[in-house]
Amino acid sequence: MKFIDCPPIGRRALSEFVYGGLVKHEPDHENVSESVWAEHVFYRHSHPQIQKEWWYHRPTGMWFFFERDTLTDVIHHVSVATKGYANEA
């Protein structure tokens, strides 16, 4: 079993977390062209890289950011999502 050191809640099993996908800035729904929206929803470079992701901790209901290497699965940095989706994505 893999364990993660999460600053406020300590050392926790990875199985307590749910993957929430890549952190991306969402364009303004009201004033966005279809091509920009498609670009946002679908298209990306997904080669191996270190990326910032949403992870949900079920037991505490907290959202975290993991900076994770998608080649080695090493988590380089963990932080708590506190400012809300609009400000953090």
Partner: peptide, 16 residues
């Protein structure tokens, strides 16, 4: 595939 398309700067919806 993402490693190859990245060489040509082609974006795709693929995730591995």
């Amino acid at each position: 595939s993402p490693r190859i398309t990245n060489m040509l700067d082609i974006k795709t919806p693929i995730e591995v």
